[in-house]
């Protein structure tokens, strides 16, 4: 299963850097989805006929999902040992 020694904190030092990317995207999303950025777009204006706040939130949301998809799909697979057990039934090691 998982013979490779791992660091204590699951987000620290991994070869493929996936966890670092995820934390970065998380912080980005946190900034995008909350004030004060939210307040900047919270004005009664429209762009291409769409309310700007509505447009902003969905575009930002889609951007985060895209970044997430790229991070998950483009980052190479970890070493086989990293993979968890597929399916049930592994007790007593």
């Amino acid at each position: 299963m998982n013979q490779e020694p791992r660091p204590l904190a699951p987000w620290s030092g991994r070869q493929n850097g996936l966890n670092e990317k995820l934390v970065a995207i998380f912080l980005l999303a946190l900034a995008l989805f909350n004030p004060p950025l939210l307040a900047v777009f919270g004005v009664p204006a429209s762009f291409l006929g769409l309310p700007i706040l509505y447009l902003y939130l969905f575009v930002a949301w889609a951007g985060v999902i895209l970044a997430l998809a790229l991070a998950m799909e483009r980052t190479p697979d970890e070493t086989p040992e990293d993979r968890g057990p597929g399916g049930a039934g592994q007790a007593g090691g």
Partner: peptide, 10 residues
Amino acid sequence: PTLMAVVWWI
């Protein structure tokens, strides 16, 4: 949930 999904892998 989107925010949480970002760190689901962890």
